[in-house]
Design a protein around this nucleic acid. Structure first.
Length: 461
RNA sequence: UCCCCAGUAGCUCAGUCGGCAGAGCAAGUGGCUGUUAACCACUAGGUCCGCGGUUCAAGUCCGUGCUGGGGAGCCA
């Protein structure tokens, strides 16, 4: 069997091949043959099959083919006299592998709304858009590994289930085997000693703390895996289950962290333009017509680079009426980030050195004692795509901050101990994989860039 | 979780001032054509999201619930 992408590109005219796929559309000609376009997911473009009425099962099978049927075609590749394709397959034999009743098959030869397609997530990868998204996710995943492997980073598999309520930030999903109908109690408290792990356990909200362990042994490492947040977020850029890329580098400060994140993004932009050309052109044509232009410009152009304090000054000078007033010390709101990114600079912006009190305990305190070495990369349309920082590597400073922010230092004894034995400056960042795919495709809703979105009230499929 | 909007044929939607339920596409039938989301004609297709209320009369007005969308917060 030959994948259609190969039949279209590398197979020679006259080659005798077998292809299998799903019928996208069929056009009958009473002159004595049918055009059948099939797609097997290997490429956006399908293969046109020429089915002659002389074929033995033409009346019984081929004539009845409709969108969604699965077929196996044996034939020879020929130059196509028609417009729209260079080659086509002249069928010697067509077998129907699976029928699709046109009265109940929900996909049609027309545009469907993304909302409707979400309700049929088991069939939506058969559409152009979701096929393209799936291929792009696969290619970008590959590129992520290539980028880090080429730079001698070690891929670390951090745990999905964790015993500590990581960072104390973000609601977590509890993992338990306790009988919820009859929870064992110690007085009023749940008796977790009877639970599977003998203590409370959660799904990870970040692999960072464990990645730091390996960075402080192996230098440059990265993780790439699923992450879980039980927040009741109902927006076009939040998922309860999403994928995150988290590099962590020893002997690294914030400046090096920032420049790696920019190199990383530019590498990925260039990769998809060079390797996912057909799918990217599709997104450019049907989703966002400025996509290719924007990505091409970003590869050569510098990102904007400002401090939080400069950002606040720009916003105060802007004379814009914001719903949330701007003031040094409060977090930048969505409208502020968008203003800086989309109005002031019109390109990705890196913001560094945020106030200490609005950032997590593990970020490295600056000499001013008021700000931390944090960085966010903001992109037009999506907002925050990367968040990172240099980590606090001084034992006493970290201990004090944990105490102050109410983190249980006993639970994080191992994290503190890393600052006791051979502590070195280190830094890292987290990239939201789906937000990157949103930026690369121009798709508005994050639920349309992951195969099976998990959001509050939705775990179907 | 909060604010706003929407829910009508398989899909995308229209439905005026409260007065007979509509179109395009898809499907079925027939015609035509090396066709390109093919084209032309005809046919069939409805719990107007659920529940309650106002009214002679509700798709339309009111209340409520559910689902979806946009925005906000939280964040990647």
């Amino acid at each position: 069997m030959v994948r259609i992408i190969r039949a279209l590109s590398s197979e020679k005219i006259g080659a005798h091949i077998v292809v299998m796929g799903w019928v996208r559309t069929k056009r009958d000609s009473k002159a004595g043959f049918s055009f059948i376009e099939i797609n097997d997911g290997s490429s956006l473009k399908g293969l046109q099959i020429i089915a002659d009425a002389e074929l033995p099962n033409y009346k019984d099978d081929i004539h009845k083919l409709v969108t969604g049927c699965a077929i196996k075609v044996t034939g020879s590749l020929a130059a196509s006299p028609g417009k729209g394709q260079t080659v086509e397959l002249k069928a010697d034999k067509i077998e129907v592998l699976g029928w699709a009743d046109p009265d109940s098959y929900p996909l049609q030869k027309k545009r469907h709304s993304f909302e409707f397609l979400r309700s049929i997530a088991h069939l939506r990868p058969r559409t152009n858009t979701f096929g393209a998204v799936a291929r792009l996710r696969s290619s970008v995943s590959h590129a992520i590994h290539s980028f880090f492997q080429e730079r001698d980073f070690i891929y670390i598999h951090t745990p999905i289930i964790t015993g500590s309520d990581c960072e104390g930030a973000g609601e977590t999903f509890r993992v338990t085997t306790l009988d919820l109908e009859n929870v064992p109690k110690n007085g009023n408290q749940i008796d977790f000693s009877q639970d599977f792990f003998g203590c409370p356990a959660n799904l990870t909200v970040s692999g960072q703390l464990e990645a730091e362990i390996y960075a402080l042994s192996m230098g440059d490492v990265y993780t790439f895996g699923p992450t879980f947040r039980a927040e009741d977020s109902n927006t076009s850029r939040h998922l309860a289950e999403f994928w995150m890329v988290e590099p962590e580098m020893a002997f690294c400060d914030l400046d090096a962290d920032v420049s790696l994140s920019i190199d990383f993004l530019k590498y990925l932009f260039a990769y998809v333009l060079n390797n996912c050309t057909e799918d990217m052109q599709f997104f450019n044509r049907f989703i966002d017509s400025s996509l290719l232009k924007t990505l091409e410009a970003l590869i050569t152009r510098d990102f904007e680079f400002i401090t939080y304090t400069e950002g606040v000054e720009l916003l105060l000078k802007a004379g814009e009426k914001f719903e949330f007033p701007v003031q040094w010390g409060v977090n930048l709101h969505s409208e502020h980030e968008r203003y800086l990114c989309e109005k002031v600079f019109k390109r990705p912006v890196v913001v560094v050195n945020y106030p200490r009190d609005i950032k997590p305990f593990y970020m490295k305190l600056n000499e001013d004692g008021k700000t931390v070495r944090a960085m966010d990369v903001l992109v037009p349309g999506v907002g925050e795509i990367i968040g990172g920082s240099q980590r606090e590597d001084d034992y006493d400073t970290l201990f004090e901050r944990m105490k102050k922010t109410g983190i249980n230092v006993d639970d994080y004894w191992w994290y503190l101990e890393l600052r006791k034995f051979g502590s070195v400056p280190h830094a890292g960042f987290g990239l939201g994989f789906e937000r990157l795919i949103q930026f690369l495709t121009g798709l508005d809703n994050i639920r349309d860039v992951i195969p099976f979105p998990r959001t509050p009230g939705n775990v179907s499929f």
